[in-house]
Amino acid sequence: MSAEEIRKVFMILLKYLVPTLKVFGFTLLYSIPLGMIVALLKMCRVKLISWITNIYILIMRGTPLMLQIIVAYYAVPMLKQSKNLPGFLNNMLSAVNIQDESFMFNAVIVAFTLNYAAYFAEIFRGGIESIPKGQYEAAASLSMNKLQTFFHIILPQVVKRVVPASANEIITLVKDTSLANVVAYAEITMKAKQQMQNYSSLIPLFIAGLFYFVLAMILTVISAAVEKKLNYYK
């Protein structure tokens, strides 16, 4: 490939950095709060709730994300074809317009969010359970209620403890966004593959790799800075 061609491919891939970052950003935006909720549900004393949560986590972590993306994308059109669905499900399905341009994006985000929330939930649960019992007892002896204890005493300490593991997960997510190409979601990897075929060259793939590498580097630097900032206490 000539230098001019490489520059052209680079510019094309740069344009498709946006959809890649959109999947990345929205997945984080939804999966972190959802993960916190799932973590709390898993620790719920009501056995049925923690049991159901456990099954959800098992499925999400036990099956490939790529498979989950395919299911999320094809589930609605497939179900729409079947005849004897309960009425409320029919109503829900008819509300989804599969011709809509954002449908593919939404399906991808649903799959990513559900999958990553399961991983974040386990990280958060580990963080919450690692806080010594004495912290709860100290808060209780000071007459703080459960919400005050959780938000002002426990959660800030959990954040510090989960940063390294979460950063790991977030860096994995940047690279996992490439899985969205399985349903033809146009992002960097899919475009790189097209350019590879265009030019019969591996170079577009290397350029794509470079994009992910730089993103991962940036995230590594950010996570190190956050860890350092939270290091004001031991």
């Binding site: 004495g134 100290a138 209780a140 002896s141 007459s143 005493i153 300490q157």
Partner: peptide, 17 residues
Amino acid sequence: IRLNIGLVFQNFNLFPH
């Protein structure tokens, strides 16, 4: 009632953050 009693623990249990 709890507000009437202050408690000091063996391991201090200060809030580290």
